[in-house]
């Protein structure tokens, strides 16, 4: 990637005391100041990295259980790059579902990323197109949340894009490496450990702490009920039906705190808590 001339100058903003003065020294044709902003982003998301690595391990192990070659694990993590949908695809295909059902289920689950993309639109607005393409590719639940929360501290768009690259790039890297490790180590993990438990546990850990609004609680309850009621549907269609029913029915329930400004329901800020 070729840095803009503006990048090499470190951008006009020097309000952040942590940032070093721009220096002519450069690594890989990227200035020192840019790496500093990148590193600040990586530090901001570092607390969430162990979870990403462990989740990656579990998804990689599932690839292995499905009997597929190990490289599919990191391939899926580097391209789809959204764990819940990858698990849904593995589940659907191992239950013998047609490809189209696996794809639709994955895209429904990933529709939430459209909300993050909308939240990030003003944050990315001043970036060149190639940066928008790159940073959108690296967008995850966690990195979108950190980016939206901290964007205000980076008023200069050049420094901000390096910061967000530092948030989302290494986080996705850890995720890919974790999946690769899981896919390779999969056969080594004893089956008595029942590593499959990480799947519900991971989603409980992400979902339950963030359950605050009535519609979100209702969506959860409706979804669980439909998944169980329709458990005899083939191909994991009960998961798709449960998710769609939860989204559709719960969206008619009014938010109690509708009048208040502040955080919109389900926004990345809320997910991050």
């Amino acid at each position: 990637m070729t840095p803009d001339p503006a990048d090499a100058a470190g951008g006009p903003d020097h309000r952040d005391p942590a940032a070093p003065s721009p220096q002519p020294r450069a690594f890989a044709r990227i200035g020192h100041a840019q790496w500093a902003d990148f590193w600040a982003g990586t530090k901001a998301i570092a607390p969430l990295m162990p979870g990403s690595a462990v989740f990656g391990l579990a998804v990689g192990a599932l690839i292995n259980l499905a009997g597929w070659p190990a490289w599919l694990g990191p391939y899926a993590s580097a391209t789809v790059s959204a764990g819940a949908s990858q698990i849904a695809i593995i589940d659907a295909l191992t239950q013998g579902a047609p490809a189209i059902i696996a794809i639709v289920t994955a895209l429904v689950i990933n529709a939430r990323l459209a909300l993050y993309s909308a939240s990030l639109a003003p944050v990315f607005a001043a970036f060149p197109t190639r940066w928008k393409l790159l940073l959108a590719y690296l967008m995850t639940d966690q990195s979108a949340a950190v980016s939206v929360i901290t964007a205000d501290k980076w008023p200069d768009p050049v420094r901000r894009r390096w910061f967000i690259f530092g948030v989302s790039g290494p986080f996705t890297g850890v995720w890919i490496l974790g999946t690769a490790a899981g896919a390779i180590l999969g056969p080594v993990i004893p089956s008595e450990w029942q590593i499959g438990f990480i799947v519900p546990l991971m989603f409980i850990a992400v979902l339950v702490p963030a359950l605050r609004t009535l519609p979100a609680v209702a969506a959860t309850g409706i979804s669980v009920a439909v998944v169980l009621l329709l458990k005899d549907l083939p191909y994991g269609l009960n998961v798709l039906a449960g998710a769609l029913a939860g989204i559709g029915l719960a969206s008619f329930i009014p938010d109690r705190a509708d009048a208040g400004a502040g955080t919109a329901p389900g926004s990345p800020e809320e997910v991050a808590e």
Partner: peptide
């Protein structure tokens, strides 16, 4: 869209 995450994860 805000309900996709809770509904999908719960499923």
């Amino acid at each position: 869209l805000s309900l996709v995450a809770p509904a999908a994860m719960a499923a």
